[in-house]
Amino acid sequence: MKPRTSLLLMALPCFILLIAFSYVPLYGWIYTFFEYKPGVSLSDSAFVGWKYFEIAFSDREVFNVLRNTLVISFLSIICSPLPVFFAILLSEIPGKRYRNFLQTVTTLPNFVSWVLVYSIFFSIFAVDDGLLNQLLFQLGIVNEPTNLLANADIAWYFQTAVGIWKGLGFSAIIYFAAITGIDPEQYDAAKVDGAGLFQMIRHITIPGIIPTYLTLLLLGIGSLLSNGMEQFYVFNNALVEDKIQVLDLYVYKIGLTLSDYSYSIAIGMAKTFVSLVLLFIANWIAKKVRGESIL
C-alpha cells in the first residue's frame, strides 16, 4: 500500500466521526424554516421562511431571557480578575507543600458535575433540613428559615457566587502558570534595586500576567451569550425562573419541554451567528491592539 493511502485510511474514520457529530447536526437548522412537528416528515411540513425569527423578535420572554443572559455574563466578567488575584496570592505562599495543597483543594469543585454542585448547595441551603438553617436555628439567629435557593432578588448574585466557588481555583491555574513563567532574574534585579514585595507584584508580576488575562477576556466576548445550560437547569425553580432563565435554558425549554422544535432552533441559530460575529470582533480588536490573532 502506498504510504499516502495508508495515512488517508487512518484519517478517514476520524474525519467521518467529526463530520457526523459536528457538521451533520448543522443540517438540522433547515427545520426552522418549516412548520415542523415531531413525527411529521419535513416534506409534509409547510415552508414558513423566517417566521420563527420574526416571532423571536416579538417574544417578550426573549427580551427577559437576553437580559438575564447578559447580566449574568456581565457579572462574571466583573469577577474575572478574581482568579488573577488568587494566583498572585497563591504564588506568595512560601511553603511548596501548603501551596500545592491549596491548589489541589480549590480546583476540586471544578471537577464535580453540576448535579453534584446542586446537591451540595441543597444540603447546605435547603429550607428545612439544610445545614445553614439548622445552625441559624440552633444559634437562635432566625425564627423563619432562609431560602436562598428560591430568592429571586439575589438569584443573579447567588449564581455568580456558585460559579466562582466552582471555577475560581481552576481558572487561577493558568495565571499561576504564567507567574511561574516569569524570568526570576527580574525579581533578583528588582531586589538588588531595593524593591519591596508590593512593588515587585505591581511592576513585575501583574505586567507579566496581563497579556494572558486580556487574551482570555477577549475570548470570553465570544461566549457572552453562552452561560451554559446545566448550571441554570439544575438551580432552576418556579420562584427564580424569571431571573435565571438564560438563553441556553430557554432553547432547552422551548425545544424539549414544549416540543416547539422550529422555534427553538431559530433561537439557537441566532445565538450561534451572534456569537460568531462577537468572536470575530474580539479577534479584530486583538489584532489591532496586540498585533496577534486569538483564534
Binding site: A11, F15, Y27, W29, G268
Partner: peptide, 27 residues
C-alpha cells in the same frame, strides 16, 4: 497526508460552529 490542511481547517472550525440543542437531538 492528502487533504491535510482541508481536514485541519474543518476540525478547527468545528470548535466555533455550534448546531445547538435541537438539531443535535434530532440527529
Amino acid at each position: 497526508t492528502p487533504l491535510r490542511s482541508f481536514m485541519y481547517r474543518v476540525t478547527i472550525a468545528s470548535m466555533y460552529l455550534n448546531a445547538g440543542l435541537i438539531p443535535w437531538f434530532l440527529v
